[in-house]
Simulated scan of single mutants.
Amino acid sequence: MEISFELIGLLFAVAVVAGTIDTLAGGGGLITIPALMLSGMSPINALGTNKLQGCLGTGTATVLLLRKSKIRLRHIRPLVIGAFLGSALGTVAVHFVDQQYLSLAVPLVLTFIAVYFILYKPGKAANLGTKVTGKTFTYAVIPGIGFYDGMFGPGTGSFFTLANVMLRRAKLIAATATAKPLNFATNFSSLIVFTLYGNVVWQVGLVMMVGQFIGAWTGVHFLYKIDPNKLRLLVVIMCVVMLGKYLESSGWITFAF
C-alpha cells in the first residue's frame, strides 16, 4: 500500500473519532477496520494494525477510569485474564482462515452490529437477559467474547457491556466502564500474536495511536455526562456509510452520483 501524508491525516482523524465513540458507546472498530482496509491494507494487516492503535485508546480509558476510581482492578482481574486468553486463541485461529473469507466477513459483521445498535434499548436490556453465575460469566462468556475480538473485533467493547448488563444485571454506565480494561486486555493479547506473525503496519498504527489517545481522553471526560443513545445513533450512521463505501470499493455496488 502507498502511504501518503493525506492518508495518514485521514486515518489520524478516523482514530480520534473512533477512540471517542469506542470509549462512550463501543464500536470503534466499526470505523477503524473498514477505514484501514479502504486504505489498501489486506484484511489480516488491517486487523493487526487496528489492535496496535486500539491498545492506546482502551489503555488510556482504563488508566483514567482507574485514577477516577470508577473501576477496581482487583474486582475484575479474573475477567481480564479470561479476556486476554480468549483473544490470544482467537488471533492464532484467524491466521488459519482464508483472507477471502475475512473480506466477506467485513460487510456481514458491519451489518449485524448496525442492526444490533438499532434494536438495542439500554433501558430494557436488564429485563431481556437471564442472569448467569459468576463462574459461567468469567470462564465462558468473557473468554468467548475475547475469542471473537481476536478473530475479528468490531463491537467487542459493546459486547462486553451488553453481556454485563444482560447476564449480570449491571448498570449501563458501570458496565461500559468495566468493558474498557477487558477490551484493553483483548487488544494487547491480540497485538502480541499479530506482531509475532508480522501483521502490523507500524507507521500507520503509531500515528493512529495518538488519535486514539485524544479520542479516549475526550470520551472518558464525557462518559458520565452524555446520552449513550445519541452516540449509538452516530455509530449506526458511520457503520452504514462505511458499509456502503466498502461495498462500492469491492465492486459489489455502484452509486449513481
Score class of each variant (00 low, 15 high):
residue 32 T to V: 13
residue 186 T to L: 11
residue 157 G to V: 05
residue 87 S to K: 15
residue 95 H to A: 10
residue 187 N to W: 09
residue 252 W to M: 15
residue 154 P to F: 04
residue 81 I to V: 15
residue 250 S to C: 00
residue 28 G to H: 12
residue 107 P to W: 03
residue 129 G to P: 07
residue 97 V to F: 05
residue 56 L to V: 07
residue 145 I to V: 13
residue 129 G to S: 07
residue 91 T to K: 10
residue 20 T to D: 04
residue 121 K to M: 14
residue 236 V to I: 13
residue 19 G to H: 00
residue 127 N to Y: 08
residue 253 I to V: 15
residue 31 I to Y: 00
residue 246 Y to Q: 07
residue 153 G to N: 11
residue 200 V to C: 00
residue 177 A to D: 02
residue 105 A to P: 00
residue 73 L to T: 10
residue 138 T to V: 13
residue 220 V to K: 11
residue 86 G to P: 11
residue 61 A to Y: 02
residue 75 H to D: 13
residue 95 H to M: 04
residue 116 Y to E: 09
residue 34 P to M: 08
residue 102 L to P: 01
residue 77 R to D: 09
residue 142 I to Q: 10
residue 6 E to Y: 12
residue 193 V to Y: 10
residue 148 Y to N: 10
residue 52 L to D: 06
residue 94 V to R: 13
residue 239 C to R: 00
residue 248 E to M: 11
residue 34 P to N: 07
residue 130 T to P: 06
residue 41 M to D: 02
residue 130 T to Y: 14
residue 216 A to Y: 03
residue 137 F to H: 03
residue 126 A to K: 10
residue 56 L to A: 15
residue 251 G to W: 08
residue 226 I to N: 08
residue 169 R to C: 04
residue 19 G to A: 02
residue 72 R to M: 08
residue 248 E to P: 03
residue 122 P to C: 15
residue 177 A to C: 10
residue 141 V to M: 14
residue 234 L to A: 11
residue 231 L to I: 14
residue 146 G to D: 12
residue 138 T to E: 14
residue 243 L to D: 06
residue 111 T to V: 03
residue 214 I to C: 00
residue 90 G to K: 14
residue 22 D to F: 03
residue 1 M to S: 06
residue 140 A to K: 09
residue 217 W to G: 02
residue 235 V to N: 06
residue 86 G to Q: 14
residue 54 G to K: 08
residue 229 N to I: 09
residue 117 F to G: 05
residue 113 I to N: 02
residue 128 L to K: 06
